[in-house]
Design a protein around this nucleic acid. Structure first.
Length: 299
DNA sequence: AATTTCAGCAACCGCATAACA
DNA sequence: CTGTTATGCGGTTGCTGAAAT
């Protein structure tokens, strides 16, 4: 184990950021010989890097199908949902987001999602936080998907967005309808059922076990409009404070007016139904106000 | 304008496990 | 079966650039 350092003088091993020359060397070598056998690749290619380092650079940065740029709302939605199912199984989650690496998803979770949890003063791995995401953040992301979808469909230049599966840029730009299609009807009580949770340490999922792969694969499923989305959209229509920034797919939380949410009886009651334990907590109001702070702290 | 702080991301490290001799 | 090597995964670190002071 860890033979690379034993076999080569430690001083010969380069560390830190990769140079353009190193990248080109690695790309050229893999183009000619294929990937894999990383230790021998590292030696044969002339790179003064460990096999591990070469593998990581290739998989996380140089591989041709790697997608760059901000995560789309669809991708963010998938991450949140899959994480609620599987926890920190980054590579497993990444399997459902073509072109995204486990490292990227992990970074997204740590820098964006956990930041929100910190501001809310909620443990990011807690059921409570997952419920908050489920009630406010994920509907918000779906709303963005919807907005994005309607924009795309109304724009002649992007009319082929969802039919061009080979387009790297648009691979994950599912329409709102497609996202909506994977949503399953909520059970009468939206509290998590133990049988629905693959990871006993994780929290609830509002989706069936295969709905996520359906989302990522964009397959044909009957439409089951989600009650949360409907309620949420309804609340949005009644409040001008909410706005959508279609050019910024970063956390929707940043722009939500939580005073509006806090004033929404519908939302509050929905949450209480869903999560009686913590929402009966006398801290309910404070929680909302903490979320309110969040908007102003974030970004 | 200079300095400090902070967020985001690329890269590294240790461990687990698969593959192989 | 056992030991060794290769690979993959998840946690952590540290660099860089932007924002704040």
């Amino acid at each position: 184990m860890g033979g690379s350092c034993n076999e080569r003088n430690f001083n010969d091993i380069r560390r830190g950021p990769w140079t353009l020359e190193e990248d080109n060397l690695l790309i050229h070598y893999i183009t000619c010989h294929g990937e894999g056998r990383w230790n021998s690749l590292a030696k044969s290619s002339g790179l003064k890097r460990t096999g591990k380092s070469c593998r990581l650079r290739w998989l996380n940065y140089l591989k041709p199908d790697i997608k760059r740029g901000n995560l789309t709302p669809q991708e963010q939605f998938l991450i949140l949902e899959l994480h609620s199912k599987w926890g920190n199984r980054w590579s497993k989650i990444a399997c459902h987001l073509p072109g995204r690496t486990d490292n990227e998803i992990k970074n997204y979770w740590r820098t964006r999602v956990q930041k929100q949890a910190r501001h809310l003063k909620i443990d990011a791995n807690s059921k409570r936080f997952v419920e908050t995401l489920r009630r406010f953040w994920m509907p918000r992301l779906l709303e963005k998907v919807k907005q994005n979808s309607s924009l795309s469909s109304s724009s002649p230049s992007s009319s082929s967005t969802y039919s061009t599966s080979t387009s790297e840029t648009n691979q994950n730009h599912l329409s709102f309808l497609q996202v909506e299609q994977i949503l399953m009807p909520l059970p009468s009580s939206s509290s998590p059922q133990p049988s629905e949770i693959e990871n006993p340490n994780s929290s609830s999922s509002i989706f069936s076990s295969d709905s996520i792969s359906k989302l990522s694969e964009s397959s044909n499923i009957h439409i089951n409009p989600n009650r949360d989305i409907a309620c949420y959209n309804s609340s949005l229509q009644n409040n001008d404070c909410y706005h959508v920034d279609n050019n910024n797919f970063d956390m929707g939380f940043n722009h939500l007016d939580m005073q509006a949410i806090g004033a929404s009886d519908m939302l509050a009651s929905e949450v209480q139904v869903a999560e009686g334990d913590w929402m009966n907590d006398a801290d309910l109001a404070n929680t909302f106000w903490n979320i309110d702070e969040l908007w102003h702290f974030s970004k």
